[in-house]
Simulated assay, not measured.
Amino acid sequence: MKRTILFLILSSFFVINACGPKGPSENELLREEVIAVHDEVMPKMGQLKSLERKALEKVEELESESSEDSSRIQEYKALAYDLNHAHEAMFIWMRQYEPKDGDQSPEEIKKYLEAQMELVTEVNVEMKEALAKADELLK
Rank of each mutant, 00 (worst) to 15 (best):
V34T: 11
K100G: 03
A78F: 06
K44R: 15
A86T: 12
N124R: 00
M127H: 02
L29R: 06
T4K: 06
K54H: 07
S71L: 13
P43C: 02
S64H: 10
N27C: 00
K58Q: 15
I35A: 11
A78E: 10
L10R: 09
S105N: 00
E122I: 09
A80Q: 02
M117Y: 08
V34D: 05
L113E: 01
S70F: 13
E52H: 09
D135C: 10
K128S: 05
H38V: 08
E68S: 11
Y81N: 11
L10T: 11
N17R: 08
E60R: 14
Y81P: 05
E107R: 00
E60S: 15
K110S: 01
Q104Y: 01
N27Y: 00
E57H: 15
A132L: 10
E108S: 04
S50C: 10
V123P: 03
L62G: 02
W93V: 04
A89H: 15
S71M: 15
S66T: 11
I92N: 13
V41R: 06
P24H: 10
E129G: 11
E68F: 12
E136H: 13
R72W: 04
L119N: 14
G23W: 06
E118V: 09
G102C: 00
E122P: 14
G20E: 13
T4S: 09
N124Y: 04
Y112D: 00
F13I: 14
L137Y: 10
I92D: 15
T121G: 08
A115L: 11
E118W: 13
D39Q: 06
H38R: 09
I16R: 01
M1S: 13
S66A: 10
E75I: 10
T121S: 10
P21R: 10
E26L: 03
H87V: 06
G46I: 00
R72G: 03
L138E: 07
Y76P: 11
E108T: 00
A18F: 08
E28T: 05
N84D: 03
I92G: 13
E122K: 15
E26S: 14
E129Y: 13
A86M: 10
K111S: 01
R95V: 13
H85W: 11
S70Y: 11
V59S: 06
K44F: 14
K100Q: 07
K77Y: 05
L51F: 14
M127D: 02
K128N: 11
C19A: 09
K49C: 12
V120R: 01
E40K: 15
N84V: 04
L56Q: 07
K133S: 13
E65Y: 05
M1K: 12
K133P: 09
R53C: 06
E88H: 08
V125T: 09
M90H: 02
V59H: 01
E40I: 14
M94I: 07
R95W: 03
S71N: 15
P106K: 01
L83F: 07
N124F: 01
